[in-house]
Amino acid sequence: MIGEGRYWEIDDNLVAEYVLGTLPHNERVAFADRLRGDPSLAMAVRRWEVRLLPLADEITPIEPPETVYENIEKALFTESAKPASWWSSLAVWQCVSAVSLAVVLLLGASLFALQRAPGGFSPTYVGRVAGNPDIVQLLAAYDPGRSVLKLNRTLGAPGQGRDFELWLIEGGNSPVSLGVLAEDRISQISVPADLAARMGDAVLAISDEPAGGSPTGQVTGAVLATGNLVRL
C-alpha cells in the first residue's frame, strides 16, 4: 500500500511520545484507548519502554513508608475495606456458591429485594454457572427490564494469554457469545435486544478461549461451566 511505511514511521514517533510521557493529555487518553484493542501497537509500546528504561538508572530508589503496603493489602485482600455492597461481597457469594441453587434463590430473593430501588438494578432471574471439576464459577443475576446481566466470578481466572467467554445456548441453536468475561470479578453485560427475550429459557456456558475471545464466533475451547437462570 502506498504510504504504508510512512504511516508506521509517524505512528512510532507517537508511540515514543506516549512512552516518554510528553503526549498532551487529550492525545494521551486517545492513545491509551487505541492501545487496549491493538496488540501490535502494544508491542511497539513495549519496545520503547525497554529502549528508554536505562534512563531510569539515575532515579534513586526511596524506601516507602510501611503504611503504603498495609493500605495495598487492605484494598486488595480485605473485603470489609470496600464500600459495603452485598453484590461485591465475595464472602457472601462464596458461601452461597458452596451450597445449593435453592439457597442461592432464597438468599438471592431477599438480597435482590433490598436492591429494588426505583430505577436501580432489579433482577428477576438468578443462576449459578459451574462445572465439574470446578475451574470457574459464576453467579449471575439478570434484570429483564434493563437487559442487564450482572456477573460475579466467585472462582477461577483464565490462564496466561487466555480468556473466559460467556455463551448463551438456547435449545438446539448454536451458542451465541455474550462476550469475554471482564478481568474484574464483578462485571456486567448489557444483553443485546435480540437476545434479551431469550435469557429466561437459555443455558449459560463458559468456555476457555484465546485472549480476546473466540476467533471464529463459535466455541473453540473447552466448555468449563454451564448453568441456567431461574426466575425468582
Binding site: M43, R46, E49, V50, L53, I72, P158, Q160
Partner: peptide, 21 residues
C-alpha cells in the same frame, strides 16, 4: 500490578520495564 500480573508476558517485555511502565 496485582491485577495486571496475569497478563504479564515475559516474552515481550522485561520485568523491570513492565513494572516501571
Amino acid at each position: 500490578v496485582w491485577r495486571a500480573a496475569s497478563k504479564f508476558a515475559s516474552l515481550d517485555s522485561s520485568p523491570i520495564s513492565w513494572l516501571a511502565a
